[in-house]
Design a protein around this nucleic acid. Structure first.
Lengths: 336, 336
DNA sequence: CTGTTAGCGCTTTCAG
DNA sequence: CTGAAAGCGCTAACAG
């Protein structure tokens, strides 16, 4: 009871069942037909000894680990978690296990983590919204297949999935315009994020196409986190910049904006309309529920995984990622 | 460019540098002093060939994989994610990597996942809030060290961390009572969850100690998810059961309760006070910010990890988990 | 200080 | 159908 159990090895089983190691291996893998008597004996021994093959050894031999590496940027962000759920579900029953590491929004750390995964001999990599250059990704892809989200990529060994941010932002802004809003504030994402910039572009295009001059005062900097949304609203209010609607570059900053509005007694949607981007799981339960641009995070994770599996020769990349769509809930309202 | 790069092996490096494999190994691991000339040659070769040792092979040889397995129940729940963040941070720089799997709140699946981890030869396991019996945990602990949260456990090879749910619920309820509330509804968690039941017990004790009769109509069933909180409030309202405060067994169900209240025009905190349990990262940004019992999720993850590392002989379990505490924000209010 | 020699536990020819 | 034997890539005695 004191010392650790020493797990049985395949050789132990073979000995116990009175057969050769190869026979046990063959039974474990269904590699070849085996006489029924021996098969029974081996199965019994496996059962009795609680034998589980050492994956480490098997991997070393076969050259593949049945493991995929997932690189996220923040291990506790609903954005990544929802995508991870898609990944996880797609992996279920395939025999693959995932190991997830975080790049913490830092290109160097990201590369380090990928090197770590490579040293651990993952069979493939899924990179979620990385900061590193496409070239670097392609470089890594020479060693192992990579599928990345948030970028366009198409080369043997690397595929990318990208959501139409510009369009999403366009329809969100247009929704606000259609509702009669003219002074629509925009809370940006980090300047370095292409997702964020594309959303800004969509916002601008919608304004332009409606013949509304973009007032640069209405564009306030944010960083995709709650607090920045809150600060953005404080800024607008403090400077007396009028607005009847706010479009936040992501849901998290919309949450922050909502709080700041609440604190200042500005009602949503009665006084100000609010739209987010992402449609995080929680956005359905804010009070009031948030109108937002739905990004198919779960499906994205799923599709990325399927694509990787297909790169690994295990499946077809059947899944099509649904497009972004506006989901109108209760934070927007007509003015007239 | 077409075919995959075949990573260099230690033997390749040795050959290129004109030394024996052992020498390369010694340099990689700092296992012994090596003549400077050879060291330089080897280092150069490593650099040039982009050599990274195959962790798989190393693990097979050394019998340890420098990997720990983490079992969660829901891969995209803020509750687990916050804990995971603590785990991740504690692992940083230790050389250990984590692989996280989900038991999906199901004892059998949980056991399966643990067996998977064991087959992959993780060095240790962290089990977050499992459903399986303590005995089963102890059984697995015979093979590899396990640290579990949400249960008391103390045996060589297994340690548990448990938060004082009863006390947390007690102080939350007492806070409401002190604010003058008498009809305090309680939204339970799943009947099978000991965390949930302990919270119910704390609620009851607070009522009792204040001389308030517990009205069983005020105790409504929930399941820790948003929707159940919403339904609980609908139920109360539909049946005309009066209450001036709600204590939800966790933050998620408090969010749902908040939404239902909003939908029915019941103001929080003006008409009804609301308290949650957990203090998820988002609870600070709800409108209004949620009063809740803070559970030190991050620290719990950290402490569990430290404890595991110490079981692995790598560190002392220095961290003490801070106790639960009430954080009063803006969803509660005095009645009088 | 450094090379040689055995394996870690499993899979896979290659004979039989 | 089945066993013997040869490694996968690395580390750890054991001799020099």
């Amino acid at each position: 009871m004191k010392e650790r159990d020493h797990p049985a090895t395949l050789v132990d089983v073979a000995r116990a069942a009175g057969v050769s190691p190869s026979t046990v291996s063959r039974i474990m893998n269904g590699t070849a037909r085996v006489a029924d008597a021996k098969r029974q004996a081996v199965l019994a021994a496996i059962e009795r000894m609680h034998f589980a093959p050492n994956q480490m050894a098997r991997s070393l031999k076969k050259g593949c680990t049945m493991t995929v590496g997932i690189v996220v940027q923040d291990i506790s962000s609903p954005f990544f978690d929802e995508t991870l759920r898609g990944v996880d579900d797609a992996l279920l029953g395939t025999g693959y296990t995932s190991v997830v590491v975080s790049g913490h929004w830092n290109a160097d750390e990201e590369a380090d983590r990928i090197r770590l995964l490579l040293a651990r001999k993952v069979d493939g990599i899924i990179l979620l919204t990385g900061r590193m250059s496409d070239d670097t990704v392609l470089q890594f892809a020479r060693e192992r297949p990579i599928v990345a989200t948030g970028r366009q990529l198409r080369s043997p060994g690397a595929v990318g999935f990208k959501v139409d941010n510009e369009h999403g932002a366009f329809i969100a802004t247009r929704h606000l315009i259609d509702a009669g809003h003219r002074r629509i504030a925009f809370i940006t994402g980090p300047a370095a994020s292409s997702d964020a910039n594309e959303r800004l572009a969509g916002y601008r295009r919608a304004l332009r196409s409606a013949g509304i001059d973009a007032d640069h005062e209405l564009i306030v900097e944010g960083d995709f986190h709650e607090h920045s949304g809150q600060r953005a609203i404080e800024h607008l209010l403090a400077h007396g910049i009028a607005f009847s609607a706010v479009f936040a570059a992501n849901d998290l900053s919309a949450y922050g904006a909502r709080l700041a509005l609440y604190r200042h007694g500005v009602r949503v949607p009665e006084d100000v309309s609010l739209v987010g981007f992402d449609d995080l799981p929680g956005s359905m339960y804010t009070a009031p529920p948030l109108t937002t641009v739905r990004q198919p995070l779960y499906d994205l994770g799923r599709a990325a995984t399927k694509a990787l599996l297909s790169l690994l020769g295990r499946a077809r990349p059947d899944d099509v990622v649904p497009p972004v769509e506006l989901v109108v809930r209760e934070t927007t309202r007509c003015v007239n």
